[in-house]
Amino acid sequence: MSNVAARTASSVTAVNLSTGKSKDKNLGSIVFLGALWFSLFFGIVVLVALIVDTAIDGAPRFDKYLFTNFTQTFDPTQAERLAASGRDPKVLSAEYSGFKSGIIGSIILMLTTAVMAIPLGVASAVYLEEFASKTSRFSRIVEINLQNLAAVPAVIYGMLSVGLMAALGAQRGIAIGGAVALALLILPVVIITTREALRSVPSEIRQGSLALGATVWQTTWRQVLPAAVPGISTGTILGLSRAIGEAAPLVMLGFGAINFAPAFPFIGSKIEAFPLEIYDASSNSQEIIRESASAGIIVLLVMILAMNAIAIIIRNKFQKSW
């Protein structure tokens, strides 16, 4: 009797759900369970249908030109005609259109964004969690603002960056402008997840370290931060995954079509963003270019999944149990 009573409601549900044999024959419970299953399947079916549909649309265009060529919009018959005067149709025809500039551009954007957002975000979180007084009015104001900032639409950060770039007299459409907008966009997310990660480090670790004579700084740097790496990296990479798909703030910043590889150092160079390039292609009048857009969407999806996989690998590698 007593061990039955000790079983919590959630473990009962877990057992019943996992075996699929609920002892509860009450009609209401069955309907509710059905509704839960429906919700679950609805989400997954829509997602799978979308991905499969896009993959089928893009199937004819999964080739190496997707990665080695810049965007090409010439109608294939026109490209043939122009090729008669000594040009290579493979560098003109829409059949061989690719996303080279977008892929390079988005990688540069991600790296620049990470370099700006991660140190700032982690440092802010460490300050708020380890050093700042939890009860001061200042901390509470920062706290509320962080939550609000996380919900601000991306375009607003785009406008902020446009203003900043104009004040600095920088050119339109350069990497650093986009990276500033994206870094601001993910900064609240990085700070919030880093704070979560720091909070999950047991306070015994801190107390033990302090008791052995370490300063607060040494404790934070040598004990707390390393212990929080899995959570921090997961949070930041998920933030970056959100940033890589953003198009709205980049349109405002004057990101356009380019067909040259950006020059080193990349931050001051004009780049093209992958999502923007896909959007362009998807609204083109030529079917063949829209096919390349579908292929591009799958490539972008794989890039995002790869980033998330890295997050999971880092988390598993560094995870400690206390």
Partner: peptide, 18 residues
């Protein structure tokens, strides 16, 4: 922009659409 690049020009043209 594409045609000029195909003809071998090194000029870097960026085209926005705002």
């Amino acid at each position: 922009q594409e045609l000029m690049a195909a003809d071998g020009s090194a000029i870097q043209v960026s085209v926005g659409q705002s």
